[in-house]
Computed example of a mutant assay.
Amino acid sequence: MSQQVRGVIAAAKNAEVSIETIVVPDPGPGEALVRVRACGVCHTDVHYRDGGINDEYPFLLGHEASGVVEAVGPDVTDVAPGDFVILNWRAVCGDCRACRRGRSQYCFNTHNATQKMTLVDGTELSPALGIGAFAEKTLVAAGQCTKVDPEASPAVAGLLGCGVMAGIGAAVNTGNVGRGDSVAVIGCGGVGSAAVAGSRLAGASRIIAIDVDRRKLDWAKQLGATHTVDAYGVDVVEAVRELTDGNGADVVIEAVGRPETYEQAFYARDLAGTVVLVGVPTPDMRLELPLLDVFARGGALKSSWYGDCLPSRDFPMLIDLYRQGRLDLDVFVSETIGLDDVEAAFTRMGRGEVLRSVVEL
């Protein structure tokens, strides 16, 4: 029997969100019904609201979430009612060419729930990243549920579902940051600050945080930055070189997603160094680099999609590190709010006043 719950809806492009009654079906084959405990407020939700992803309105927003499995459909065996889970948007298929080669983190056929959640009048909803967790309950594919230690804070755990995992993974998985490496992170919002934390976790000896906002640089220092660069009116490339004995950083992580900052990242790395793009550009952006420079500098230019993570491997590991006191995830939770406060939280996020606002239910 379907259930009716409250959820945050983006009904039209650039319109403020509203709280509506959502109809959530019982889980069918391969699906799970999750009672949401907490959900982070992410820039991606703003992109959905403002039409930056697609125009499949209305959207049920929210995707950085943790919760408790309430029911599962037929043939679901990996999770069961009562399990505390982090929701992910990479439910791997196990059968595509990437999965068959043992590279499930690059699965080409990730999937979501088959059934649609709707408004009371039957209008089908598009859940953000196939999750839709600014709601009291949501319906997802069972593979989108990753079981973790139930003693972890729901507010903290949910953040691994998107931004924090993207940043940590950009450093650890994509950038392969190693002991003694120098790392520069351009853009120190939620994802960039997580990349700082991931670089520290990996044993980097020099971690340079770069931003135009002093608050973000202060957050980065709390998470392990050894040096900070206020990029306002400063030559970022020269600043990084000065802090790396004139060489540039071994790994530069671009967490802004703009051509200007990507070019800074390209030239701020050491010869044969690595650039990791984890900031999300818009479709209209174009990049121009001298091809000879790309050839002559060697190294690697990589993109990091979801931190190249495999949720079943990475989420439990990072929660364990958090529980052991080796990874400070509490820093990311700037405030906890209710469903009714999401629109105001978007404004605070846009002003750079928070790393993450987290809706608690």
Rank of each mutant, 00 (worst) to 15 (best):
T274M: 12
R200L: 12
C145Q: 04
R103S: 07
A133L: 12
A202P: 08
G169A: 11
V17C: 09
L87R: 10
D308T: 06
V256L: 13
M165I: 14
G94D: 04
R37A: 12
G246N: 06
V36T: 07
F332K: 15
P27W: 02
G189H: 03
C99F: 13
R200Q: 14
D314E: 05
Y267W: 15
E263V: 14
P283F: 00
A194L: 04
R351E: 13
G82R: 03
R313Y: 01
G246K: 13
L289H: 02
A345Q: 03
A272T: 12
P74G: 08
G67L: 01
L287N: 10
W219D: 15
D284G: 12
D230M: 05
G7D: 13
A209S: 04
A166V: 05
V79M: 05
V41E: 15
P281N: 08
T110E: 00
G67M: 01
V251M: 13
F108P: 00
V234A: 09
V148Q: 07
L291W: 03
A204R: 08
A272D: 14
C93W: 03
S312V: 06
A166K: 15
A345F: 01
R101N: 14
I319A: 02
V23N: 10
P29L: 01
G298H: 03
A12E: 15
M165V: 08
V79Y: 03
W89C: 14
T261I: 11
D340I: 03
V148M: 05
V5T: 08
G122A: 09
